[in-house]
Nucleic acid binder design. Structure first.
Lengths: 224, 224
DNA sequence: TGCGCAATTAAAATATATTTTTTAATAAAA
DNA sequence: TTTTATTAAAAAATATATTTTAATTGCGCA
């Protein structure tokens, strides 16, 4: 498919990172990854270099690569920024969006609705994560700014890394489906202020849920 | 100096890119760069991979790397985004900034004032570019958000690439020094609205100047 | 028994070599 | 003259080998 090996490694590694397959601050050994993906170390290094620039992994000279750390402080900061950007995108999308935009939003929402949220092990299913990402991207798309989308995508990706952590404590006591539906309805009704309000609430609620999970996990680690 | 060769190459290549040493869309040949820096191709590829993630170069599988293209549309989009982020940073910096912040701003401004703007060949002098970048960074620093600074830095870097293009048509008919001084004064006086206004005007003016230069360059190319 | 130091191991960083793919150049056919 | 094959050159991608650096272990000694 995607011709080059380094490209494939990059994509797969990124997906694994976002899916929380590796723990934060875990060491990413070049040769281990090399044999796991059965490619040369050069390809791995190249993929890790790109992920470093994205902030998903950290590089320390002479000491290799690690999964980027997570923290409550970072999550809060990230969410603040996300609220700023996502609402700005949303405002502009509602102002600019045409029928094609409405159509992709409706389609993405329908797919999201029809995708089971949980995998067998209790985490988010990869299919749902993808549908969820596509839905939010579809909403923002019509903002008409490549840079805004670029920044939005970066922030969204980082948030996905936190999302898995939330699943454990978020046992159905949150009606995410309803939030998404209301968000879509407000956007399609061109009710800008309501849509912005719902988006802000959605992101803040996500942050709170994740934060609770993070603190619980920290407390558990300290108990050991 | 900075331990690893790949790190050095990355930094130098990035600086050259921002200084406009390579033309947009110019091919970046791995082995050429390798011999130029006298390092292995692996180090070059790694540096280029990071720059790709930053958007300063583009990578096409099986076909190598190129300097990222420039366009009027991108410049406008970039500036819009920059106005959003820079003013947001500025507002928060003015609200949060303490004496230490004021001090670094004053220091950065003094250095900027004392640095000759032009190099012998008429382009911006590297020292001025650095002082200029530091001044704007100093202003924003006290915003207290790592993510906001991260995005700001990314956008600023991309703008630097355009800046060189402007120099040719910007023969002293712009009083950048005054703009910077007024900006600093408003910030230190905690006059938020005036500072935001000045920042917006500063960035918009920069865009207009660059845009004129870009269009002139395009017209010249078409004549050939 | 605890501590510092040398020897060993592991892993990262770098260089070189090989393979594969693309680009270009040239020649043959319409 | 234009188009299409064929081939040669260049460059990218990948793999392997070497060097350098950091971490670990075991040993002597206080």
């Amino acid at each position: 498919m995607s011709g080059s090996a380094t490209q494939t490694v990059y994509e797969q590694l990124r997906a694994s990172l976002l899916a929380g397959l590796y723990r934060p601050e875990e060491k990413l050994k070049i040769s281990e990854l090399g044999s796991a993906f059965s490619v040369s170390t050069g390809a791995i290094r190249e993929a890790l270099a790109r992920l470093t620039a994205e902030g998903l992994v950290t590089a320390t000279p002479q000491r290799g690569f690690r999964v980027a750390p997570v923290s409550v402080a970072d999550l809060r900061d990230l969410t603040d920024m996300r609220v700023e950007i996502e609402t700005k995108c949303l405002r502009r999308a509602i102002a600019n969006g045409d029928l094609a935009w409405e159509t992709t939003v409706v389609a993405a929402h329908h797919r999201l609705t029809g995708t089971p949220i949980a995998a067998h092990d209790g985490s988010f299913s990869p299919a749902w994560m993808l549908a969820h990402a596509d839905f939010h991207a579809a909403l923002a798309q019509a903002c008409g700014s490549a840079w805004m989308m670029r920044v939005r995508d970066l922030l969204f990706a980082h948030n996905e890394r936190y999302l898995d952590l939330a699943r454990k404590t978020d046992r159905g006591n949150r009606d995410a489906a309803r939030e998404h539906r209301e968000l879509m309805e407000a956007a399609l009704a061109r009710d800008t202020e309501r849509a912005v309000m719902l988006m802000t609430a959605h992101l803040d609620k996500t942050r709170d849920t994740i934060e609770a999970a993070l603190l619980a996990a920290t407390a558990m680690n300290e108990a050991n």
